[in-house]
Nucleic acid binder design. Structure first.
Lengths: 242, 242
DNA sequence: CAGTATCCTTCCAGATACTG
DNA sequence: CAGTATCTGGAAGGATACTG
C-alpha cells in the first residue's frame, strides 16, 4: 500500500495556487508532458525521466489518478500504462504556455542550450508551442522528421492540429535533428541559415516554406511580402530592456 | 551576500523542463503572480505569501533578478520594491493558463473551495484568466468591485485588457465579494442565481450584462439569443431561488 | 515489469538575531 | 524598513534493494 502523505498546500483562494497545489511538485508536470504526447507504461516513464526514482514516480502516478488527471489503462487484466483523462487534457494549454516561456529562456540564453538529455519527442511539444493559430495562410500539412521522431502540423479548414506520426499528403516534409530544431525554435539559428548549411532539408514546393515558417513564428507573413528578400528571423520579441 | 546554491535541474532539452528549472520551485510562481498584478515591496510580498519565511523570499527574489525575470525598483537611492522586467512579463500567459486550470480544479471539486486565505486581488487574475478574447461583442468597459479591490475589463477596438483600478466610463459596475467571485469563476454558482440572491449587484444597462457574462465564459452568446432572458439588473428582492 | 520499502540527503518552514 | 545570516525539525526528494 502507498501510504497517504500530508500534502503541502499554499492554502490560498487563488486559481494559480490551487493549480500549483496539485501539479506544482517536482516531476509532476513532466509526467503530464509525457502523457500529453501519448499514453505510456511505467517503464517508459522511468526511461524518459532519468533521475526520478521509482518511489516518486509511483507516488506521483497514484496521486494524479486520485485527482482525476490520469487513469490507468489496462489491457486484459494487467496495468498496461497510464493515459490522461479528459480532465487532465486541460493541462495541455498551461504546459504549452510554459514550454513557450522555456523557449524564450533559451532564446535569451538564460539557460544552457546544450545541456542535458535530448529527446526527439520533446520536439513535438515544442512545435505545438510554436504554432500561432492566427497565422494560418493555407489548409495544408507540414510533416516533420526530427531524428527518429515523426510528427506533423495540419491546417484543416483554418484550424491547426499538431500530432505525432506521419501526416496525410503533406505539402512539405522537413527533416532535421533535435538540436537544430530547438535552435530554430529559440531563435538561436536562422531558418535560412539552417537550410543553406544543410542541417535542415525540405521536400516540397518552395512557395509553401514561408507559410510553414510563418505559422511556427519563424518568418514574416508571406501574404504581406511583395518580394522574397532575405528573411529576418521574423520573431523578434523586443530585446529585453537591461 | 547570498551564497549560491547548487540548483536542481531536470537536465532535459525541452521547453517545459527549461521553464520548470527556472520557475518550478516552491513559491516562485506565486511571487511572479503578485508582481503581475503590480510592483511590490519586500514587506508586501511577505504579507501576501504567508508562510514563506524571510530567507526563502530573499533567495527567490535574488534568483529572479539574476535570471532577468524581475528587477529592483528604486525610488531615490533606496530599494522601493520589485517589478517584472519586460522579459518576466512573458510569464503572464503561462500563469493565466495555470490559473484557468486551477479554476477547473475548483469547478470539479478537486480542491477545497473554501480553504485558505482569501484576497480580493487574486480576483483580478481570475478575471483575466476567464476572459475569452474571441468572445468580444462590443467595445465597452466592465468595472468590478470585489471586496476592497477594484479592477476593470475593457474592450477597445476588439482587444481585451484587464487592469487594476477603476475603469473609464464603465457601462457596467459589478460589485461582489471574493468568495462569490470565485464561485462564479469556477461554475460553482450560477450568475443568475447570484444576481437574484443579491450576492452580486450590477449597475448599468441590463442589455450589457449578457455580453459581459459571455466574455467571461459565464453565459451563452448574446448574439445568438433572441430575447433577453434576464432583465433584472437592479435589485430584485428576496426571491430566494432554492 | 511494476511497483514497494528503506535509507540518506537536500530543501523548506519557522524562528530569531543582526546590519545599514 | 529592507533585507541578510544562522539554526533546527521535519518533510520532500534521490538512490537502491527488494518483492509479487
Amino acid at each position: 500500500m502507498t501510504e497517504q502523505r500530508e500534502r503541502r498546500s499554499y492554502d490560498q483562494q487563488c486559481g494559480l495556487a490551487f493549480a500549483l497545489d496539485v501539479i506544482g511538485e517536482r516531476w509532476t508536470l513532466l509526467i503530464v508532458r509525457e502523457l500529453l504526447l501519448r499514453p505510456r507504461r511505467y517503464r517508459e516513464l522511468r526511461d524518459v525521466l532519468p533521475g526520478i526514482g521509482t518511489n516518486l514516480l509511483a507516488e506521483r502516478l497514484n496521486y494524479l489518478i486520485e485527482v482525476g488527471i490520469i487513469e490507468p489503462v489496462d489491457a486484459n487484466r494487467r496495468t498496461a500504462g497510464y493515459a490522461l483523462t479528459k480532465f487532465g487534457e486541460q493541462l495541455r494549454e498551461p504546459v504549452l504556455a510554459m514550454a513557450r516561456f522555456g523557449l524564450a529562456l533559451l532564446a535569451e540564453r538564460r539557460v544552457d542550450p546544450r545541456a542535458g538529455v535530448r529527446r526527439a519527442s520533446w520536439a513535438v511539444l515544442a512545435a505545438e508551442a510554436m504554432v500561432h493559430p492566427d497565422r494560418v495562410r493555407a489548409d495544408e500539412t507540414y510533416q516533420f522528421k526530427v531524428d527518429d521522431e515523426q510528427f506533423h502540423v495540419t491546417v484543416d479548414t483554418g484550424k491547426v492540429r499538431t500530432r505525432s506520426g506521419p501526416g496525410i499528403q503533406p505539402i512539405l516534409t522537413i527533416e532535421t535533428d533535435t538540436q537544430t530544431f530547438f535552435d530554430l525554435g529559440s531563435g538561436t539559428t536562422d531558418p535560412v541559415e539552417a537550410l543553406l548549411s544543410g542541417s535542415v532539408t525540405v521536400i516540397g514546393p518552395p512557395a509553401a516554406v514561408p507559410r510553414c515558417l510563418f505559422l511556427l513564428g519563424l518568418g514574416a507573413d508571406p501574404g504581406l511580402r511583395a518580394k522574397p528578400l532575405v528573411s529576418c528571423a521574423g520573431k523578434s520579441p523586443t530585446k529585453s530592456g537591461e
